[in-house]
């Protein structure tokens, strides 16, 4: 399981970085989204791979890490997901405005 998760984080991050280095604004937008999946999963993976132990307290079960997974990475990622959405929205609108203004979709606003 760890191997699969690590590989997927690597694939998402690699694809994201590749796209971020491209010259078209839309590629960068998509690349940032991919990279944020990777980063979110990376932070999430810091809580280790655990199945069937959501951090939702059940009566009678002692509140220890033996019974529940680590809630801290989850809390961090939850905010990150929402902020990612905000970032995507802002970038998208800037992208559209730049496309209208510059008459091309190069990240520098002009074809080099």
């Amino acid at each position: 399981m760890e191997i699969i998760l690590a590989l997927s984080i690597g694939a998402l991050a690699g694809s994201g970085v590749w796209l971020m280095l491209r010259s078209r604004t839309y590629q960068v937008l998509i690349g940032l989204s991919l990279l944020s999946y990777a980063v979110n999963l990376f932070i999430f993976s810091m809580g280790r791979v655990r199945t069937g132990a959501p951090p939702i307290l059940k009566p009678g079960v002692p509140e220890t890490l033996a019974n529940y997974t680590d809630p801290v990475p989850q809390a961090l990622v939850l905010t990150a997901i929402v902020i990612t959405f905000a970032m995507t929205a802002l970038f998208l609108v800037v992208l559209l405005a730049a496309r209208g203004l510059a008459r091309n979709d190069h990240v520098d606003g002009r074809e080099s």
Partner: peptide, 29 residues
């Protein structure tokens, strides 16, 4: 390189045992 590095790093963390006395324990309790 970045993809491989991130994958390796997360793998390296995931295969280590979780510390018991971390902040997670506090929040759960």
């Amino acid at each position: 390189v970045v993809g491989a590095g991130l994958a390796l790093l997360s793998f390296a963390v995931m295969v280590r045992p979780q510390p018991d006395n971390g902040i997670a324990q506090y929040f759960l309790a």
